[in-house]
Amino acid sequence: MSDRKIRVLIAKPGLDGHDRGAKTVATVLRDAGMEVIYTGLHQTPEMIAEAALQEDVDVVGLSILSGAHMSLFPRIREALKARDMGDVLLTGGGIIPEDDMAALEADGFSKLFGPGTRTTDIVAWIEGAVKERWAREEA
């Protein structure tokens, strides 16, 4: 299956108005050879999970600045599980306290990046985690 490409959905939940960060990440991932589906602003957890299903993505990337991560992440994970997509990788960035990060990453399919993260680190994490995901599928 040499033709397989990493598919990523970039979504911007919540009411925050601008999406420059999301666009930057989308472009970086595209340049790393991934197929990036961009969905725009103000997505609800249900809409995000539904788009993830329709697009059969490996990764959902969220840009969160609103501090709503502690409710959004679990809600999106639940909505994904309801669609038989509980193992989709979930990632996002923002100013998030360490304790919260640890709690959100506990399921093993999630990863949060703090401010100032190098984009190469994001690419590397996605590539590694998706390889594991594909290997699990083959097994």
Binding site: I37, Y38, G40, A51
Partner: peptide, 8 residues
Amino acid sequence: GALLGDRI
């Protein structure tokens, strides 16, 4: 790679 934006 590709940026797929029609969904917006």
